[in-house]
Nucleic acid binder design. Structure first.
Ligand code: FES
Ligand code: FES
Lengths: 144, 144
DNA sequence: TTTATTTCGGATATTTTTATCCTATTTATA
DNA sequence: TATAAATAGGATAAAAATATCCGAAATAAA
């Protein structure tokens, strides 16, 4: 469904958000450990998220990653997915036709579009805050 | 969502079904042309589907691929997807945890499982016959 | 100002997916 | 029986995704 890069990006963002509530900046190393992801690969993804202004990176000693506390509840999964995987999950045809077009539908178009739309709505309405709170409450997990 | 192999497998199966209704066996070449897929790669996928008894292959002159007419309405998309992509689409965690487990959910589990279940139901209830009929009626397309 | 820490970013490596090539095998028919 | 037409399947190649390495740049603190 999502690429590995996107999975890491989502999990990392949640962990960063969680720490940002406590004014704590987290290092790449801490993130990779917490979400069980390869460090260098995760670094690339974090750079990408920083370039998209989803997270903030601070270089140098005592540097790391953080998210503006006030923005956490405004950041939707959709932004992360679009930043990393692009919007093919929204516009792509389920059977790989060049474009998903109501006027030139593939055989599964009608059945597929509803599911894809539900996914779209889910991504557009889910924000980082709620996900971080679940982790904090021990109601969900970032690894294993 | 689906792998390229799976997309080709679904489209090929629909085209084979369509022809099998008219007692026509279709060649690899004809299939690849009709669904705009690479011939040799498509051959591998068809072999896979044949091994899974979803389609039937006939070697030699006047050979090709066909589906037992009476089975066309019984073949569900689910069988094709499972044969090619396996069942990770059913059991896999949306964020890549080892297993999707209600008791050890990832942050998006609750929101994800409903969408995944809708997809599952769609695949389990959609059969080749209805898809082939749409193609025949010009209501859907296999390429471009 | 030096040092330790940490992200940045380019280059490279590995793995997986997608695609191609070639020979063997099977089968209908001339 | 010889030939042509097809699929089967192993080997290989190309492309994309995933992962690693390393030096450069930035920054805090000694
Ligand atoms: S055309 Fe294939 S999903 Fe819309
Ligand atoms: S645990 Fe991640 S989708 Fe169920």
């Amino acid at each position: 469904m999502f690429s590995k890069a996107c999975e890491y990006g989502i999990k990392a963002s949640i962990f960063i958000a969680l720490n940002s509530y406590q004014e704590k900046r987290v290092s790449l190393k801490a993130i990779a450990k917490e979400i069980a992801s390869p460090e260098a690969f995760t670094a690339k993804i974090l750079q990408d998220l920083a370039r998209h202004n989803i997270i903030n990176s601070v270089k140098g000693a005592h540097g790391g990653f953080e998210i503006n506390k006030k923005q956490i509840s405004e950041i939707k999964l959709e932004q992360i997915v679009k930043a990393i995987d692009g919007d093919k999950i929204y516009n792509g045809c389920g059977l790989g036709l060049h474009t998903c077009d109501e006027n030139h539908p593939c055989p599964v178009h009608d059945k597929f579009k509803d599911i894809r739309n539900d996914l779209k709505i889910m991504l557009e309405t889910t924000n980082l805050e709620e996900l971080a709170l679940d982790i904090k409450a021990g109601a969900s997990f970032l690894k294993i």
